[in-house]
Simulated scan of single mutants.
Amino acid sequence: MSFINIDVTLRDGGYRNGFAFPLDYALEHARLSVESGFDWVEIAYRNGSFKPIPNIGLTGRGENEYIRSMAREIGPEHVAIILHPKNITAADLTEMYAAGARLVRIIVPPDEPEPGLRHVRRAREIGFTVGVNFARVSQLSARRLADLAAACADAAADVVYLADSNGSLSPMEAAELVTLTRSITGGDVGLHAHNNLGLALSNAIAAADHGAVWMDSSIQGMGKGPGNLIAEQWLAHLDRSSPGTCSHLQLAPALELAELLLAKVPEATPSLSVPDLVLGRYDLPVEHRRNILGDAREGLVKARGLAAAS
């Protein structure tokens, strides 16, 4: 099976360092990412994350000149950007495309999907490849997921992405969600895995085995909380298990990129804190992290209560 791989380090990894990647590093990162065989490099949020972050850095803004710099470095056909519908206008989409972005991913909130769907339709008209992301998919009911997937298919999204934002899915659950989504949309499905329970790679393999063809990963797993599917592990797995169909993937530049990231960005050092593991165990979003800091045993009790109340 052939996969479409997205490197999300510069975007999701930004939660670790305030999105403050220097431009020269971001460009070198993207160049090595494409050399490694990534189809797309997700270079930034457009106009910020879901919640405002003071003094947000380069890869949290996704400004036009930054997009142009990336398009010159790696070609528009590799430049992806993600956004929250509430942060943009239709003019943003036009400007992003003119600057050189060609994949846009739109986060569609389950409680208010229509603004996102309008942007999906507009982005398709402009000429983007369009993905939609369902955040915290582990907390969606099967009925709600099916309804959202159908609406996104009707809006002509190219791919529906299941984002395990809480890092709580098991391989069996990942497989079931992919199967359900494919049965509704009849189109491409992707997985954005987080690694709270150390299952990101297992979930990616299970999702792929059940038809997911788009996959997010980040170098050294750098991402929110304990991070994402580790790109180097995913590429190594593909190189070992499917050498014939993944011949364009090159592990050497990915490993070089991992060394560069660790040397240049201290916040990239992998870590799994006790609170992040507990959040994964109880399927809680990162916003609850502050409620379970402190004593580990007490944190477990608090998390159990939060989960029961949700």
Results as ranks from 00 to 15, higher is better:
I6H: 01
N228M: 02
A307S: 12
R304I: 08
L10T: 02
S217C: 07
A123C: 09
V265F: 07
P285F: 05
G75K: 04
V8A: 06
G127T: 04
E173V: 11
K86Q: 14
R46K: 13
L257K: 01
Q220P: 07
R240G: 11
S69H: 10
Y66Q: 07
N196V: 03
D154V: 11
S183P: 05
D295R: 07
G131M: 10
S33D: 05
V301S: 13
S273K: 12
N55W: 09
S69Q: 13
D154G: 11
T245G: 15
N203C: 15
P226A: 14
N291R: 15
A151D: 10
S2M: 11
N291H: 15
L277T: 14
Q233C: 13
P266K: 06
V265M: 10
P110F: 09
V159N: 04
D24Q: 12
P275S: 09
V301N: 11
A163D: 11
L169H: 00
P266Y: 10
R16N: 12
P285L: 07
I126N: 07
D147P: 10
M70K: 08
A155R: 00
G127I: 02
N55K: 11
F128H: 03
F50N: 14
A309V: 06
E173R: 14
A91R: 14
D111F: 14
M70H: 09
F3Q: 15
D209H: 14
T94P: 09
G62W: 01
I106D: 03
A99T: 05
D111N: 12
A236K: 06
D209P: 11
K264D: 13
V108A: 06
S170Y: 02
L300Q: 13
A150I: 06
L306P: 04
H248L: 09
T179M: 09
